[in-house]
Write a protein that binds this DNA or RNA. Structure first.
Lengths: 187, 187
DNA sequence: ATTATGTTACCGAACGTTTGGTAAAATTGA
DNA sequence: TCAATTTTACCAAACGTTCGGTAACATAAT
């Protein structure tokens, strides 16, 4: 039998899991191989430029997910701002598994020497800001207020993920999401 | 000349810098050797248990700094709550170099396999929470309010560090510190 | 329909390098 | 001389990466 092709999504999910839980340096080719079910050499067949290319693929994979799920709901003009926010926050809940998983930006932001993924992370975060900025405008905020509130929201999400993990208490994350919802709904 | 003993503080500062900028896995013994001016084997003379012991020492080193500087100011009964907060936030500014440096917890929270520093990080964060909790009580908050506000404050600090770095804009960090000051001073 | 050729998907084994770590010797001050 | 400190030289293991090869499929000329 010809070796059955491992599905791209299964590979990307496996790689994502490893990079997110161990970071870039912590993720060994052995780990990535085990998580995907592909031997090291096969990984190099799919990703000729090695580990860096795998991490880039993961970054794109997750970014696409975020755009199709989180950003889509937050910007979906068929819904009212309140519903948009509620649905968007729900996707964020899924993205971070209720506070148990960490952000891929954080996992890839620390590695030896040069900042390998600084550009990708910067672009990704800008998109988060401008998405919440749009939502703020829909809630009737001024452009300045909308931008500030968007930044504050990002801070709450990222900060609560860290504190949740540090205190080993996912309530912190859930509370932060609810605070975000309350804050916007008062506008 | 006898090989001059490198001062403990210089060693710890060097180690801190490497671990904070590269994380645990990203910090190689070569990096640590270069940063301290000690050859690998000399590092093993000071830290017989190797890299893990070095990182533990860094964690204690920074934790001591935080307690002597940050927590001291935040809890200093000679000052009013407002002054305490102002001085404490200033120490935090120094600790994170105005938003340019990241938290040691974050740097050491991601490494292969088991969570090597989970306990230390957990204890450290608890202390941050209870310190701000005390401050909240001094501001006249109820115990529940004080605890919630302490958590919110930690989230702002940690979150703004991440977003600052991601957006490459240290204003985000500075704004967060000022928001913390404003929030408490309204109580 | 058969054959030849090329492509796709995978894997075992090995590559050179770097890793964290150590034993023994050199260097110094006391 | 002695003990403390640093260094040179070295090691096994793990690292990311590459190579050579196999088996199944696709294409298309015969």
């Amino acid at each position: 039998m010809r070796p059955q092709k491992v599905l791209d999504n299964e590979i990307l999910d496996g790689l994502s899991q490893v990079f997110r839980s161990k970071g870039y340096n912590g993720a060994s080719l052995k780990d990535l191989s085990d998580a995907t079910g592909l031997k090291k050499a096969s990984l190099y067949h799919r990703f000729p430029n090695g580990k860096k290319e795998m991490a880039d693929a993961v970054l794109n994979h997750i970014q696409s997910w975020v755009e199709e799920r989180v950003f889509f709901e937050l910007l979906n003009e068929e819904n009212s701002p309140n519903i948009r926010l509620k649905k968007g926050l729900n996707e964020i809940r899924i993205l971070y598994n209720g506070g148990k998983e960490i952000c891929i930006f954080r996992a890839l932001s620390l590695q030896s020497g040069l900042e390998l993924f600084a550009n990708e992370i910067n672009n990704g975060m800008q998109k988060w800001v401008s998405t919440f900025e749009s939502l703020g405008l829909s809630f009737g905020l001024t452009p300045t207020e909308a931008k500030n509130e968007a930044t504050r929201t990002l801070i709450k999400i990222q900060g609560s993920l860290i504190v949740s993990k540090g205190l080993n208490n996912i309530e912190v994350f859930e509370n932060a999401l609810q605070e975000i919802e309350m804050t916007y709904s008062k506008f």
